[in-house]
Design a protein around this nucleic acid. Structure first.
Length: 219
DNA sequence: ATCCCGAGGG
DNA sequence: CCCTCTGGAT
């Protein structure tokens, strides 16, 4: 994809999904601990589910120290309404404990250190690095980003390394944190896996998938 | 019935 | 690459 088209895509995404109050839908840009914990919790569940438990969780455990002092059994009832709560309770307590014991109570700022935390994989690490720290290590590639970027014709690969490299065309005018947020949100709200909302899509004229769909329907 | 801002383990 | 983990919304 040519750089001008990539920049146009970024500009439109940025215009349609403005970041208000330092937050994306529900994950803050300015709080590494909350960004980390919320991203761990949001795996394979809806943002609504995570938002519903967010205040109760952080009012009881506002810091890594507070969460590290808890037991998973104690945390589990608070996040019971989200999916995979049993594993996630162990993940976030274990992550808090390791932050306290191995990283001096501060969320680490390297890919390897973040991924050493239980429940933290490549996507979560990239979200925290780019959102909370402004560290440009990589694009957070999840199912939404794969689908959106492929439909737009920005990449033809399923390899996260290659997708990341291809998506760097979006970066000249934006931060990685914004790029990570914008593609994910577009995939959630408009460029959905099934029944994508072409009528509402402001990238339609640049979209390879839409063009193919139109061509397939015409006689 | 099917899906949801993944990660860990085999 | 495959499977499992999970409750809630539609």
């Amino acid at each position: 994809m040519d750089p001008d088209t990539a920049c146009a895509i970024y500009r439109r995404l940025s215009k349609h999904y403005p970041i208000v109050g330092g937050r994306t839908n529900f994950i803050p840009f300015d709080n590494p601990f909350e960004s980390l914990i919320l991203t761990i919790l949001s795996a394979q569940t809806t943002d609504r589910s995570v938002t519903a438990v967010r205040d109760a969780l952080f009012s009881r455990y506002p810091t890594p120290e507070a969460l590290a002092a808890a037991s998973p059994a104690e945390v589990e009832p608070i996040i019971r309404t989200i999916g995979f709560h049993h594993a996630k309770a162990a993940y976030i307590v274990g992550t808090a404990q390791k932050i306290v014991e191995s990283f001096g109570g501060e969320v680490p700022r390297t890919m390897d250190e973040l991924r050493s935390l239980p429940g933290v994989g490549r996507k979560t690490a990239n979200i925290v690095l780019s959102h909370a720290f402004g560290i440009n290590i990589g694009i957070a590639v999840d199912t939404h980003v794969k689908r959106v970027s492929h439909r737009l014709g920005m990449t033809d690969s399923r390899n996260p390394d290659i997708i990341e490299r291809d998506l760097m065309a979006l970066l000249p005018e934006g931060t990685w944190g914004e790029v990570n947020y914008l593609l994910i949100r577009h995939g959630r709200e408009i460029c959905t896996a099934r029944n994508p909302q072409h009528d509402a899509c402001f990238l339609r004229d640049l979209c390879r998938y839409y063009a193919e769909e139109v061509r397939a329907k015409s006689p």
